[in-house]
Design a binder for these strands. Structure first.
Lengths: 289, 289
DNA sequence: GTTCCGCATGAATCGATAG
DNA sequence: ACTATCGATTCATGCGGAA
Protein backbone atom coordinates (compact mmCIF):
# COMPACT_ATOMS: atom_id res chain seq x y z
CA UNK A 1 0.00 0.00 0.00
CA UNK A 2 1.28 3.35 -0.98
CA UNK A 3 1.55 5.72 1.93
CA UNK A 4 2.59 8.79 0.02
CA UNK A 5 0.50 11.57 -1.53
CA UNK A 6 -2.47 10.75 0.63
CA UNK A 7 -4.59 12.25 3.33
CA UNK A 8 -5.05 9.62 5.99
CA UNK A 9 -7.79 9.76 8.58
CA UNK A 10 -6.77 8.83 12.11
CA UNK A 11 -4.67 9.82 15.09
CA UNK A 12 -1.12 10.33 13.89
CA UNK A 13 0.04 8.34 16.91
CA UNK A 14 -1.56 5.25 15.40
CA UNK A 15 -1.25 6.03 11.72
CA UNK A 16 2.47 6.66 11.84
CA UNK A 17 3.12 3.16 13.22
CA UNK A 18 2.72 1.92 9.66
CA UNK A 19 5.50 4.14 8.43
CA UNK A 20 9.06 2.81 8.33
CA UNK A 21 11.92 4.49 10.17
CA UNK A 22 13.75 7.32 8.42
CA UNK A 23 11.26 7.69 5.61
CA UNK A 24 10.23 11.34 5.83
CA UNK A 25 12.32 14.31 4.67
CA UNK A 26 10.50 17.11 6.41
CA UNK A 27 7.74 17.52 8.97
CA UNK A 28 5.81 20.74 9.20
CA UNK A 29 2.81 21.01 11.45
CA UNK A 30 0.68 23.23 13.55
CA UNK A 31 -0.95 20.98 16.13
CA UNK A 32 -4.14 22.03 17.85
CA UNK A 33 -3.04 24.40 20.59
CA UNK A 34 -4.01 23.74 24.17
CA UNK A 35 -7.69 24.44 24.79
CA UNK A 36 -8.15 25.76 21.27
CA UNK A 37 -10.29 24.34 18.49
CA UNK A 38 -12.38 22.40 20.94
CA UNK A 39 -15.00 21.74 18.35
CA UNK A 40 -12.71 19.74 16.13
CA UNK A 41 -10.05 18.35 18.40
CA UNK A 42 -11.69 18.11 21.80
CA UNK A 43 -9.42 20.62 23.47
CA UNK A 44 -6.38 19.26 25.26
CA UNK A 45 -5.91 21.05 28.59
CA UNK A 46 -2.74 23.11 29.00
CA UNK A 47 -1.52 21.01 31.92
CA UNK A 48 -1.96 17.82 29.93
CA UNK A 49 -0.55 19.12 26.69
CA UNK A 50 3.02 17.89 27.00
CA UNK A 51 1.94 14.41 27.97
CA UNK A 52 -0.39 14.33 25.03
CA UNK A 53 2.20 15.53 22.55
CA UNK A 54 5.29 13.54 23.52
CA UNK A 55 4.26 10.06 22.27
CA UNK A 56 3.43 11.66 18.95
CA UNK A 57 6.71 13.54 18.65
CA UNK A 58 8.41 10.22 19.39
CA UNK A 59 6.86 8.84 16.23
CA UNK A 60 7.90 11.94 14.32
CA UNK A 61 11.45 11.36 15.47
CA UNK A 62 11.36 7.77 14.31
CA UNK A 63 9.99 8.34 10.82
CA UNK A 64 12.12 11.40 10.09
CA UNK A 65 15.30 10.87 8.09
CA UNK A 66 18.54 11.67 9.96
CA UNK A 67 19.12 14.67 7.70
CA UNK A 68 15.52 15.79 7.99
CA UNK A 69 13.94 18.66 9.88
CA UNK A 70 10.83 19.11 12.00
CA UNK A 71 9.27 22.55 12.19
CA UNK A 72 6.63 23.00 14.86
CA UNK A 73 4.30 26.00 14.80
CA UNK A 74 3.00 26.60 18.30
CA UNK A 75 2.22 29.30 20.83
CA UNK A 76 1.38 29.07 24.49
CA UNK A 77 -1.76 30.79 25.71
CA UNK A 78 -2.44 33.05 28.63
CA UNK A 79 -3.98 31.28 31.60
CA UNK A 80 -5.08 33.30 34.60
CA UNK A 81 -3.16 36.35 33.43
CA UNK A 82 0.06 34.43 32.98
CA UNK A 83 1.71 32.72 30.03
CA UNK A 84 1.48 28.99 30.43
CA UNK A 85 4.76 27.09 30.23
CA UNK A 86 3.72 24.00 28.33
CA UNK A 87 5.68 25.03 25.27
CA UNK A 88 8.84 25.52 27.31
CA UNK A 89 8.34 22.14 28.94
CA UNK A 90 7.69 20.60 25.58
CA UNK A 91 11.01 21.81 24.20
CA UNK A 92 12.89 20.44 27.19
CA UNK A 93 11.11 17.08 27.08
CA UNK A 94 11.64 16.74 23.34
CA UNK A 95 15.34 17.26 23.88
CA UNK A 96 15.33 14.41 26.37
CA UNK A 97 13.54 12.41 23.72
CA UNK A 98 16.47 12.87 21.37
CA UNK A 99 15.53 15.98 19.41
CA UNK A 100 17.97 18.81 18.92
CA UNK A 101 16.42 22.28 19.29
CA UNK A 102 18.22 23.99 16.46
CA UNK A 103 16.44 27.27 15.98
CA UNK A 104 13.40 29.35 16.80
CA UNK A 105 11.89 31.36 13.98
CA UNK A 106 9.39 34.08 14.74
CA UNK A 107 6.25 34.38 12.68
CA UNK A 108 5.06 37.96 12.96
CA UNK A 109 1.32 38.10 12.29
CA UNK A 110 0.43 41.60 11.36
CA UNK A 111 -3.28 41.02 11.46
CA UNK A 112 -3.47 39.41 14.85
CA UNK A 113 -6.73 39.05 16.69
CA UNK A 114 -8.02 42.36 18.00
CA UNK A 115 -8.99 43.08 21.54
CA UNK A 116 -8.11 45.19 24.54
CA UNK A 117 -7.21 44.04 27.99
CA UNK A 118 -6.00 45.82 31.09
CA UNK A 119 -2.69 43.98 31.30
CA UNK A 120 -1.61 42.87 27.86
CA UNK A 121 -1.52 43.84 24.22
CA UNK A 122 -2.58 41.83 21.23
CA UNK A 123 -0.55 38.68 20.74
CA UNK A 124 0.98 39.17 17.36
CA UNK A 125 3.58 36.44 16.97
CA UNK A 126 4.01 32.68 17.06
CA UNK A 127 6.91 30.34 17.50
CA UNK A 128 8.25 28.20 14.69
CA UNK A 129 10.48 25.75 16.50
CA UNK A 130 13.03 23.92 14.40
CA UNK A 131 14.08 20.48 15.61
CA UNK A 132 16.63 18.11 14.11
CA UNK A 133 17.99 14.62 14.70
CA UNK A 134 21.57 15.55 13.92
CA UNK A 135 23.84 18.53 13.89
CA UNK A 136 24.07 18.25 10.13
CA UNK A 137 20.84 18.42 8.21
CA UNK A 138 19.68 19.38 4.75
CA UNK A 139 19.17 23.08 4.30
CA UNK A 140 18.92 24.80 0.95
CA UNK A 141 19.34 28.39 1.88
CA UNK A 142 19.53 29.59 -1.68
CA UNK A 143 15.94 28.51 -2.21
CA UNK A 144 14.59 31.19 0.08
CA UNK A 145 16.92 34.00 -0.87
CA UNK A 146 15.19 37.22 -1.63
CA UNK A 147 16.13 39.51 -4.45
CA UNK A 148 17.68 42.69 -3.16
CA UNK A 149 14.67 44.63 -4.31
CA UNK A 150 12.38 42.28 -2.51
CA UNK A 151 14.54 42.38 0.50
CA UNK A 152 14.11 46.09 0.65
CA UNK A 153 10.47 45.42 0.11
CA UNK A 154 10.45 43.01 2.98
CA UNK A 155 11.96 45.55 5.27
CA UNK A 156 10.36 48.68 4.00
CA UNK A 157 7.15 48.24 2.10
CA UNK A 158 6.06 44.87 3.41
CA UNK A 159 5.98 46.43 6.82
CA UNK A 160 3.43 48.77 5.28
CA UNK A 161 3.47 52.49 5.28
CA UNK A 162 2.20 52.79 8.78
CA UNK A 163 4.77 50.51 10.29
CA UNK A 164 7.45 52.71 8.91
CA UNK A 165 6.17 55.66 10.82
CA UNK A 166 5.16 53.61 13.80
CA UNK A 167 8.53 52.48 14.91
CA UNK A 168 9.86 55.97 14.60
CA UNK A 169 13.17 54.68 13.44
CA UNK A 170 15.40 57.31 12.10
CA UNK A 171 15.29 57.38 8.39
CA UNK A 172 17.91 55.11 6.98
CA UNK A 173 19.11 54.06 10.36
CA UNK A 174 20.60 50.68 9.90
CA UNK A 175 19.40 50.65 6.40
CA UNK A 176 21.89 53.09 5.18
CA UNK A 177 24.43 51.60 7.47
CA UNK A 178 25.74 48.97 5.19
CA UNK A 179 23.86 49.43 2.01
CA UNK A 180 27.10 49.05 0.13
CA UNK A 181 27.07 45.42 1.15
CA UNK A 182 24.11 44.70 -1.04
CA UNK A 183 24.67 46.99 -3.95
CA UNK A 184 25.50 44.86 -6.93
CA UNK A 185 24.35 41.75 -5.14
CA UNK A 186 21.33 40.11 -6.61
CA UNK A 187 20.03 38.12 -3.72
CA UNK A 188 20.38 38.15 0.00
CA UNK A 189 19.51 35.69 2.73
CA UNK A 190 16.46 36.28 4.88
CA UNK A 191 16.44 36.38 8.67
CA UNK A 192 14.68 34.25 11.24
CA UNK A 193 11.76 36.67 11.49
CA UNK A 194 8.98 35.98 9.02
CA UNK A 195 6.36 38.61 8.29
CA UNK A 196 3.15 37.06 7.09
CA UNK A 197 -0.51 37.84 7.59
CA UNK A 198 -2.96 35.15 8.61
CA UNK A 199 -5.59 34.24 6.09
CA UNK A 200 -9.01 35.16 7.23
CA UNK A 201 -11.01 35.87 4.13
CA UNK A 202 -11.44 32.32 2.94
CA UNK A 203 -14.98 31.20 3.38
CA UNK A 204 -14.65 27.60 2.30
CA UNK A 205 -11.86 26.66 4.59
CA UNK A 206 -10.31 28.44 7.52
CA UNK A 207 -6.62 27.66 7.58
CA UNK A 208 -4.55 28.24 10.66
CA UNK A 209 -1.69 29.61 8.61
CA UNK A 210 -1.22 30.98 5.10
CA UNK A 211 0.13 28.63 2.44
CA UNK A 212 3.22 30.81 2.11
CA UNK A 213 4.34 29.70 5.55
CA UNK A 214 4.83 25.98 4.85
CA UNK A 215 6.03 26.90 1.36
CA UNK A 216 8.87 28.93 2.79
CA UNK A 217 10.07 26.08 5.00
CA UNK A 218 9.53 23.41 2.35
CA UNK A 219 11.76 25.38 0.02
CA UNK A 220 14.33 25.76 2.75
CA UNK A 221 14.50 22.18 3.97
CA UNK A 222 13.56 19.97 1.02
CA UNK A 223 14.14 19.47 -2.67
CA UNK A 224 11.84 18.40 -5.41
CA UNK A 225 10.54 14.88 -4.86
CA UNK A 226 11.14 14.84 -1.11
CA UNK A 227 8.39 13.69 1.24
CA UNK A 228 6.68 16.27 3.46
CA UNK A 229 4.58 15.13 6.43
CA UNK A 230 1.96 17.09 8.33
CA UNK A 231 0.49 14.92 11.11
CA UNK A 232 -2.20 17.52 11.91
CA UNK A 233 -3.07 18.49 8.36
CA UNK A 234 -6.26 20.37 9.20
CA UNK A 235 -7.54 22.09 6.09
CA UNK A 236 -4.66 20.77 4.01
CA UNK A 237 -2.51 23.84 3.67
CA UNK A 238 0.81 22.01 4.09
CA UNK A 239 -0.17 19.46 1.45
CA UNK A 240 -1.17 22.21 -0.96
CA UNK A 241 2.20 23.87 -0.46
CA UNK A 242 4.01 20.56 -1.05
CA UNK A 243 2.16 19.83 -4.27
CA UNK A 244 2.78 23.29 -5.64
CA UNK A 245 6.48 22.80 -5.00
CA UNK A 246 6.56 19.32 -6.57
CA UNK A 247 7.15 17.56 -3.26
CA UNK A 248 5.38 14.43 -2.11
CA UNK A 249 3.06 14.81 0.85
CA UNK A 250 1.52 12.85 3.68
CA UNK A 251 -1.32 14.41 5.61
CA UNK A 252 -2.96 12.98 8.71
CA UNK A 253 -5.92 14.19 10.72
CA UNK A 254 -8.35 12.68 13.21
CA UNK A 255 -11.25 14.64 11.79
CA UNK A 256 -12.95 13.00 8.83
CA UNK A 257 -14.33 16.39 7.93
CA UNK A 258 -10.89 17.97 7.77
CA UNK A 259 -9.57 15.01 5.79
CA UNK A 260 -12.26 15.46 3.20
CA UNK A 261 -11.59 19.17 3.02
CA UNK A 262 -7.89 18.47 2.54
CA UNK A 263 -8.60 15.91 -0.15
CA UNK A 264 -10.75 18.40 -2.01
CA UNK A 265 -8.10 21.06 -1.92
CA UNK A 266 -5.22 18.78 -2.86
CA UNK A 267 -7.02 17.12 -5.73
CA UNK A 268 -8.02 20.50 -7.02
CA UNK A 269 -4.44 21.65 -6.98
CA UNK A 270 -3.17 18.44 -8.51
CA UNK A 271 -5.59 18.73 -11.44
CA UNK A 272 -4.54 22.25 -11.97
CA UNK A 273 -0.91 21.22 -12.05
CA UNK A 274 -1.44 18.30 -14.38
CA UNK A 275 -3.29 20.54 -16.76
CA UNK A 276 -0.95 23.45 -16.72
CA UNK A 277 2.33 21.76 -16.10
CA UNK A 278 2.48 18.26 -17.61
CA UNK A 279 6.16 17.97 -16.92
CA UNK A 280 6.94 17.48 -13.26
CA UNK A 281 9.52 20.14 -12.94
CA UNK A 282 11.24 21.33 -9.84
CA UNK A 283 9.74 24.56 -8.70
CA UNK A 284 12.84 25.29 -6.80
CA UNK A 285 15.70 24.95 -9.23
CA UNK A 286 18.38 26.66 -7.24
CA UNK A 287 18.58 24.42 -4.23
CA UNK A 288 22.01 23.07 -3.51
CA UNK A 289 23.58 20.79 -0.98
CA UNK B 1 22.52 57.92 52.09
CA UNK B 2 20.46 58.54 49.02
CA UNK B 3 20.24 55.48 46.81
CA UNK B 4 18.39 57.02 43.91
CA UNK B 5 19.67 58.74 40.77
CA UNK B 6 23.05 57.11 41.11
CA UNK B 7 25.29 54.68 39.30
CA UNK B 8 26.61 52.27 41.90
CA UNK B 9 29.66 50.13 41.35
CA UNK B 10 29.38 46.55 42.56
CA UNK B 11 27.67 43.23 42.02
CA UNK B 12 23.92 43.84 42.13
CA UNK B 13 23.64 40.79 44.39
CA UNK B 14 25.49 42.71 47.10
CA UNK B 15 24.47 46.25 46.27
CA UNK B 16 20.76 45.52 46.34
CA UNK B 17 20.95 44.26 49.94
CA UNK B 18 20.99 47.90 50.98
CA UNK B 19 17.69 48.57 49.24
CA UNK B 20 14.46 48.19 51.20
CA UNK B 21 11.68 45.85 50.11
CA UNK B 22 9.12 47.14 47.61
CA UNK B 23 11.03 50.27 46.73
CA UNK B 24 11.43 50.01 42.94
CA UNK B 25 8.71 50.65 40.37
CA UNK B 26 10.27 49.06 37.33
CA UNK B 27 13.31 46.94 36.50
CA UNK B 28 14.66 46.80 32.99
CA UNK B 29 17.88 45.03 32.20
CA UNK B 30 19.89 43.19 29.66
CA UNK B 31 22.24 41.03 31.70
CA UNK B 32 25.53 39.79 30.35
CA UNK B 33 24.62 36.77 28.31
CA UNK B 34 26.21 33.50 29.11
CA UNK B 35 29.86 33.43 28.13
CA UNK B 36 29.77 37.09 27.14
CA UNK B 37 31.62 39.89 28.92
CA UNK B 38 34.12 37.46 30.32
CA UNK B 39 36.34 40.19 31.64
CA UNK B 40 33.71 41.87 33.76
CA UNK B 41 31.56 39.04 35.00
CA UNK B 42 33.99 36.20 34.62
CA UNK B 43 32.09 34.68 31.73
CA UNK B 44 29.30 32.64 33.23
CA UNK B 45 29.05 29.33 31.40
CA UNK B 46 25.68 28.48 29.86
CA UNK B 47 25.22 25.50 32.16
CA UNK B 48 25.85 27.66 35.20
CA UNK B 49 23.84 30.63 34.05
CA UNK B 50 20.60 29.87 35.85
CA UNK B 51 22.39 29.22 39.12
CA UNK B 52 24.24 32.48 38.74
CA UNK B 53 21.14 34.49 37.93
CA UNK B 54 18.63 33.19 40.46
CA UNK B 55 20.04 34.77 43.66
CA UNK B 56 20.07 38.07 41.82
CA UNK B 57 16.51 37.76 40.54
CA UNK B 58 15.54 36.96 44.13
CA UNK B 59 16.80 40.40 45.11
CA UNK B 60 14.93 41.95 42.20
CA UNK B 61 11.77 40.30 43.46
CA UNK B 62 12.32 41.65 46.93
CA UNK B 63 13.00 45.28 46.01
CA UNK B 64 10.27 45.51 43.37
CA UNK B 65 6.95 47.02 44.40
CA UNK B 66 3.97 44.64 44.25
CA UNK B 67 2.53 46.61 41.34
CA UNK B 68 5.89 46.82 39.61
CA UNK B 69 7.21 45.03 36.55
CA UNK B 70 10.49 43.39 35.60
CA UNK B 71 11.44 43.25 31.92
CA UNK B 72 14.35 41.00 31.06
CA UNK B 73 16.04 41.27 27.69
CA UNK B 74 17.75 37.96 27.07
CA UNK B 75 18.47 35.53 24.30
CA UNK B 76 19.89 32.07 24.52
CA UNK B 77 22.93 31.39 22.41
CA UNK B 78 23.61 28.45 20.18
CA UNK B 79 26.03 25.94 21.65
CA UNK B 80 27.32 23.20 19.39
CA UNK B 81 24.71 23.97 16.75
CA UNK B 82 21.85 23.82 19.17
CA UNK B 83 19.90 26.44 21.13
CA UNK B 84 20.81 26.23 24.78
CA UNK B 85 17.89 25.99 27.17
CA UNK B 86 19.09 28.17 30.00
CA UNK B 87 16.50 30.82 29.21
CA UNK B 88 13.69 28.27 29.37
CA UNK B 89 15.05 26.92 32.63
CA UNK B 90 15.39 30.43 33.95
CA UNK B 91 11.73 31.19 33.31
CA UNK B 92 10.63 28.02 35.08
CA UNK B 93 12.92 28.56 38.06
CA UNK B 94 11.89 32.19 38.41
CA UNK B 95 8.28 31.08 38.54
CA UNK B 96 9.17 28.78 41.42
CA UNK B 97 10.85 31.76 43.00
CA UNK B 98 7.55 33.62 43.01
CA UNK B 99 7.62 35.53 39.74
CA UNK B 100 4.70 35.48 37.35
CA UNK B 101 5.68 35.14 33.67
CA UNK B 102 3.14 37.57 32.29
CA UNK B 103 4.25 38.08 28.72
CA UNK B 104 6.99 37.66 26.14
CA UNK B 105 7.54 40.61 23.84
CA UNK B 106 9.55 40.18 20.69
CA UNK B 107 12.06 42.83 19.74
CA UNK B 108 12.44 42.64 15.99
CA UNK B 109 15.80 44.16 15.14
CA UNK B 110 14.98 45.57 11.79
CA UNK B 111 18.41 46.47 10.58
CA UNK B 112 20.14 43.22 11.30
CA UNK B 113 21.29 42.84 7.76
CA UNK B 114 21.63 39.35 6.34
CA UNK B 115 24.61 37.23 7.20
CA UNK B 116 25.40 33.68 6.25
CA UNK B 117 26.02 30.56 8.29
CA UNK B 118 25.78 27.02 7.03
CA UNK B 119 22.97 26.04 9.38
CA UNK B 120 21.08 29.16 10.27
CA UNK B 121 20.12 32.63 9.18
CA UNK B 122 20.89 35.92 10.73
CA UNK B 123 19.33 36.19 14.15
CA UNK B 124 17.20 39.29 14.07
CA UNK B 125 15.01 39.11 17.16
CA UNK B 126 15.34 38.98 20.93
CA UNK B 127 13.13 38.06 23.83
CA UNK B 128 11.81 40.66 26.25
CA UNK B 129 10.40 38.64 29.11
CA UNK B 130 7.90 40.40 31.34
CA UNK B 131 7.67 39.24 34.95
CA UNK B 132 5.39 40.47 37.70
CA UNK B 133 4.76 39.86 41.37
CA UNK B 134 0.99 40.03 41.09
CA UNK B 135 -1.75 39.56 38.56
CA UNK B 136 -2.52 43.25 38.81
CA UNK B 137 0.26 45.67 38.04
CA UNK B 138 0.67 49.19 36.76
CA UNK B 139 0.40 49.51 32.99
CA UNK B 140 -0.18 52.77 31.16
CA UNK B 141 -1.13 51.56 27.72
CA UNK B 142 -2.07 54.98 26.38
CA UNK B 143 1.53 56.10 26.70
CA UNK B 144 2.70 53.84 23.88
CA UNK B 145 -0.15 54.06 21.40
CA UNK B 146 0.81 54.20 17.75
CA UNK B 147 -0.71 55.89 14.69
CA UNK B 148 -3.67 54.08 13.24
CA UNK B 149 -3.11 51.93 10.15
CA UNK B 150 -3.76 52.76 6.52
CA UNK B 151 -6.88 50.78 6.89
CA UNK B 152 -8.73 53.36 8.95
CA UNK B 153 -7.16 56.29 7.22
CA UNK B 154 -8.53 55.26 3.86
CA UNK B 155 -11.80 53.81 4.75
CA UNK B 156 -13.11 54.74 8.12
CA UNK B 157 -13.05 58.45 7.62
CA UNK B 158 -15.23 58.14 4.57
CA UNK B 159 -18.02 56.19 6.17
CA UNK B 160 -21.45 57.71 6.00
CA UNK B 161 -23.28 59.07 8.98
CA UNK B 162 -25.58 56.11 9.07
CA UNK B 163 -22.63 53.78 9.12
CA UNK B 164 -21.17 55.56 12.05
CA UNK B 165 -24.19 55.09 14.20
CA UNK B 166 -25.48 51.68 13.22
CA UNK B 167 -24.73 50.06 16.51
CA UNK B 168 -27.38 47.41 16.64
CA UNK B 169 -28.06 46.70 13.03
CA UNK B 170 -25.61 43.88 12.53
CA UNK B 171 -25.54 41.03 14.95
CA UNK B 172 -22.37 39.14 15.76
CA UNK B 173 -19.95 40.51 13.24
CA UNK B 174 -17.62 42.66 15.22
CA UNK B 175 -17.62 45.44 12.77
CA UNK B 176 -21.20 46.42 12.55
CA UNK B 177 -21.36 46.45 16.30
CA UNK B 178 -19.68 49.59 17.33
CA UNK B 179 -18.10 51.24 14.41
CA UNK B 180 -18.39 54.60 16.07
CA UNK B 181 -15.58 53.48 18.33
CA UNK B 182 -13.08 54.05 15.57
CA UNK B 183 -14.37 57.23 14.08
CA UNK B 184 -11.99 60.03 14.71
CA UNK B 185 -9.48 57.76 16.34
CA UNK B 186 -5.95 58.41 15.30
CA UNK B 187 -4.09 56.01 17.50
CA UNK B 188 -4.37 52.34 18.25
CA UNK B 189 -2.77 50.06 20.79
CA UNK B 190 0.44 48.34 19.75
CA UNK B 191 1.08 44.61 19.83
CA UNK B 192 3.69 42.54 21.61
CA UNK B 193 6.05 42.75 18.63
CA UNK B 194 8.30 45.77 18.73
CA UNK B 195 10.05 46.90 15.58
CA UNK B 196 13.15 48.82 16.43
CA UNK B 197 16.49 49.21 14.74
CA UNK B 198 19.62 48.51 16.68
CA UNK B 199 21.76 51.50 17.28
CA UNK B 200 24.65 51.76 14.94
CA UNK B 201 26.03 55.22 15.46
CA UNK B 202 27.72 54.33 18.71
CA UNK B 203 30.75 56.47 19.13
CA UNK B 204 32.45 55.73 22.41
CA UNK B 205 30.18 53.16 23.92
CA UNK B 206 28.62 50.08 22.45
CA UNK B 207 25.14 49.94 23.81
CA UNK B 208 23.51 46.56 23.79
CA UNK B 209 20.18 48.10 22.86
CA UNK B 210 18.88 51.40 21.53
CA UNK B 211 17.62 53.93 24.06
CA UNK B 212 14.18 53.69 22.47
CA UNK B 213 13.81 50.18 23.83
CA UNK B 214 13.92 50.97 27.57
CA UNK B 215 12.03 54.19 26.80
CA UNK B 216 9.13 52.24 25.36
CA UNK B 217 8.83 50.02 28.43
CA UNK B 218 9.41 52.87 30.87
CA UNK B 219 6.53 54.74 29.27
CA UNK B 220 4.40 51.62 29.44
CA UNK B 221 5.06 50.58 33.03
CA UNK B 222 5.91 53.76 34.96
CA UNK B 223 4.84 57.33 35.45
CA UNK B 224 6.82 60.46 36.01
CA UNK B 225 8.79 60.30 39.25
CA UNK B 226 8.84 56.51 39.49
CA UNK B 227 12.09 54.68 40.17
CA UNK B 228 13.67 52.59 37.40
CA UNK B 229 16.37 50.05 38.21
CA UNK B 230 18.88 48.46 35.87
CA UNK B 231 21.11 46.08 37.83
CA UNK B 232 23.42 45.55 34.83
CA UNK B 233 23.53 49.11 33.62
CA UNK B 234 26.45 48.68 31.22
CA UNK B 235 26.87 51.84 29.19
CA UNK B 236 23.96 53.53 30.95
CA UNK B 237 21.27 53.37 28.30
CA UNK B 238 18.45 52.56 30.72
CA UNK B 239 19.41 55.44 32.98
CA UNK B 240 19.52 57.82 30.03
CA UNK B 241 16.04 56.74 29.03
CA UNK B 242 14.76 57.20 32.59
CA UNK B 243 16.18 60.71 32.90
CA UNK B 244 14.75 61.79 29.57
CA UNK B 245 11.33 60.64 30.73
CA UNK B 246 11.59 62.35 34.14
CA UNK B 247 11.87 59.08 36.05
CA UNK B 248 14.34 58.40 38.81
CA UNK B 249 17.00 55.80 38.12
CA UNK B 250 19.31 53.37 39.84
CA UNK B 251 22.12 51.82 37.84
CA UNK B 252 24.44 49.08 39.05
CA UNK B 253 27.44 47.49 37.38
CA UNK B 254 30.49 45.54 38.56
CA UNK B 255 32.70 47.27 36.06
CA UNK B 256 34.16 50.55 37.26
CA UNK B 257 34.78 51.42 33.64
CA UNK B 258 31.14 50.94 32.70
CA UNK B 259 30.05 52.87 35.79
CA UNK B 260 32.16 55.82 34.78
CA UNK B 261 30.83 55.69 31.25
CA UNK B 262 27.27 55.61 32.58
CA UNK B 263 27.97 58.53 34.90
CA UNK B 264 29.32 60.56 32.02
CA UNK B 265 26.29 59.91 29.89
CA UNK B 266 23.75 60.51 32.65
CA UNK B 267 25.33 63.71 33.89
CA UNK B 268 25.48 64.97 30.34
CA UNK B 269 21.79 64.32 29.90
CA UNK B 270 20.88 65.78 33.26
CA UNK B 271 22.70 69.04 32.51
CA UNK B 272 20.92 69.24 29.24
CA UNK B 273 17.60 68.73 30.93
CA UNK B 274 18.22 71.23 33.67
CA UNK B 275 19.13 73.82 31.11
CA UNK B 276 16.27 73.22 28.75
CA UNK B 277 13.54 72.10 31.05
CA UNK B 278 13.69 73.67 34.49
CA UNK B 279 10.28 72.38 35.46
CA UNK B 280 10.07 68.68 36.08
CA UNK B 281 7.03 67.90 34.04
CA UNK B 282 5.32 64.61 33.49
CA UNK B 283 6.18 63.19 30.11
CA UNK B 284 3.29 60.85 30.19
CA UNK B 285 0.21 62.77 31.12
CA UNK B 286 -2.42 60.35 29.95
CA UNK B 287 -1.56 57.34 32.00
CA UNK B 288 -4.40 55.82 33.92
CA UNK B 289 -4.73 53.15 36.48
C1' DG C 1 -9.45 47.47 -16.57
C1' DT C 2 -8.43 50.05 -12.47
C1' DT C 3 -9.58 51.86 -8.12
C1' DC C 4 -12.53 52.20 -4.36
C1' DC C 5 -15.32 50.66 -0.80
C1' DG C 6 -18.27 47.31 2.14
C1' DC C 7 -17.70 43.69 4.96
C1' DA C 8 -16.73 39.17 7.24
C1' DT C 9 -13.49 36.99 9.97
C1' DG C 10 -9.77 35.69 12.79
C1' DA C 11 -5.00 29.69 17.34
C1' DA C 12 -7.55 36.03 21.82
C1' DT C 13 -8.30 37.45 26.63
C1' DC C 14 -10.67 39.12 30.61
C1' DG C 15 -14.32 39.52 33.86
C1' DA C 16 -18.77 38.39 35.23
C1' DT C 17 -22.27 35.09 35.79
C1' DA C 18 -24.04 30.54 36.39
C1' DG C 19 -23.90 25.57 37.80
C1' DA D 1 -13.46 26.87 45.51
C1' DC D 2 -13.49 25.45 40.91
C1' DT D 3 -15.08 24.91 36.11
C1' DA D 4 -18.08 26.24 32.08
C1' DT D 5 -20.16 29.54 29.28
C1' DC D 6 -21.01 34.31 27.56
C1' DG D 7 -20.48 39.15 26.41
C1' DA D 8 -17.40 42.99 25.45
C1' DT D 9 -13.44 44.60 23.51
C1' DT D 10 -10.55 45.49 18.96
C1' DC D 11 -7.90 46.01 14.05
C1' DA D 12 -5.54 44.24 9.67
C1' DT D 13 -6.58 41.78 5.58
C1' DG D 14 -8.46 39.97 1.29
C1' DC D 15 -12.42 39.20 -1.29
C1' DG D 16 -16.03 40.73 -4.23
C1' DG D 17 -19.01 44.09 -5.96
C1' DA D 18 -19.51 48.94 -7.37
C1' DA D 19 -17.98 53.26 -9.42
Amino acid sequence: MNLVNQIIQGDCLDVLQQFPDNSIDFIFTSPPYADQRKKTYGGVKPDEYVGWFLPRSEQFLRVLKPTGTFVLNIKERAVNGERHIYVLELIMKMREQGWRWTEEFIWHKKNSYPGKWPNRFRDSWERLLQFNKQKKFNMYQEAVMVPVGDWAKDRLTKLSETDKTRDESKVGSGFGKNISNWVGREKVYPTNVIHMATECGNKNHSAAFPVDLPSWFINLFTRSGDVVLDPFIGSGTTAVAAIKLSRKYVGIDVSEEFCNLSRERTSGIQMQFLAVEPKSEAYNSNGSA
